[in-house]
């Protein structure tokens, strides 16, 4: 029972991070109708930045703030300068640009900070003894911290979407960009803010997950997370923030239980398992569990 609970805790912690990464993907998809393959690598870059700031003596929370701010800037600038001019051309063009960004940001992080693994400080107490027992299982403080931050972040995003003018305008642009413009919404600025918001959320996902990750901070840290987050976003429905959160948690818990209990897959094929989920969803329920928009199909 205690082992099951610990696996469950692990799953929820990872799932929480997948959830906010998926949220970043959903925010971008709702604003510009593309999946930003580079979201993970942009977050990787800002996470390296946060790590670097801690090496020059700043506390990690300051690094996290800087990562969030840089993530916002990167997202907004990328939308304005690279995505907007080609968005109307075709899917392929935005995908290629995203792949270019993917490669460039990963290599840039490696170029600036080399490819050695960095131990990433945690925002929370992360010692071996920093846990409290729950029904015989250990719940570590840093896991609980991640849960709380993710919860706050999700609440913040939902507040933004549902209770503010800006959020209403974002939803309006996602729903019917032309009518939004005709209502006086500055659609360009809204799209840019959407990408910026996704940049913040993605960056925070990076800063939160790397201290918990077995690989710590290395050039390959974020890619698997992007894969799981894509699976989560598709699972919940690419245009549904609620779906992203539910999908992220579901994938995290499933991953932890499958690697724990299913021997054939155990440990060596976890990404493949997530990818099988992606393919099955695309084939049989392309709108996901909570999605509403008709996805492109023929």
């Amino acid at each position: 029972m205690d082992i099951f609970l610990e696996r469950l805790f692990d799953g929820v912690t990872n799932g929480a991070v997948y959830a906010i990464m998926a949220l970043a993907l959903v925010v971008v998809f709702r604003s510009t109708g593309t999946i930003n393959f580079a979201q993970g690598e942009m977050a990787l870059f800002t996470t390296y930045l946060a790590w670097w700031l801690t090496t020059v003596g700043l506390p990690i929370w300051a690094g996290a703030l800087a990562a969030g701010a840089t993530g916002f800037l990167l997202g907004a600038v990328v939308e304005r300068t690279l995505i907007r001019p080609i968005r109307r051309r075709n899917d392929m063009a935005s995908l290629i640009v995203a792949l270019g960004l993917f490669t460039a940001f990963n290599a840039l992080a490696g170029l600036l900070w080399n490819s050695e693994t960095k131990p990433m400080p945690s925002l929370f107490p992360a010692g071996l003894e920093d846990f409290f027992p729950v029904a015989g299982a250990r719940l570590y403080w840093d896991a609980l911290g991640v849960w709380l931050v993710v919860l706050a972040l999700i609440a913040g995003v939902f507040f933004l979407f549902n209770r503010t003018r800006l959020g209403l305008q974002m939803r309006a642009v996602a729903d019917n960009a032309e009518s939004a413009a005709l209502s006086g919404v500055p659609t360009g600025r809204i799209l840019m803010l959407g990408w910026g918001l996704a940049g913040i959320v993605g960056s925070l996902a990076g800063v939160l997950v790397t201290p918990l990750s077995a690989t710590q901070l290395s050039l390959t840290t974020m890619f698997p997370i992007l894969i799981y987050a894509s699976a989560a976003a598709l699972f919940g429905g690419l245009d549904s923030p609620v779906g992203a959160v539910v999908g992220g948690l579901a994938i995290g818990v499933l991953e932890a239980l499958i690697t724990g209990y299913v021997e054939f897959i155990g440990g060596t094929l976890p990404q493949t398992a997530a990818l099988v989920v992606i393919v099955l969803i695309l084939l049989f329920r392309p709108t996901g569990l909570f999605g509403t928009r008709q996805l492109e199909r023929l």
């Binding site: 593309t34 995908l95 199909r297």
Partner: peptide, 24 residues
Amino acid sequence: PALRIRGLYLALVTLAVGVAFPEV
């Protein structure tokens, strides 16, 4: 899968194959 999905989503399927290969 290309029979049912295209564009971005088809790219995701091929991505899945590409990522799965080294793991397999």
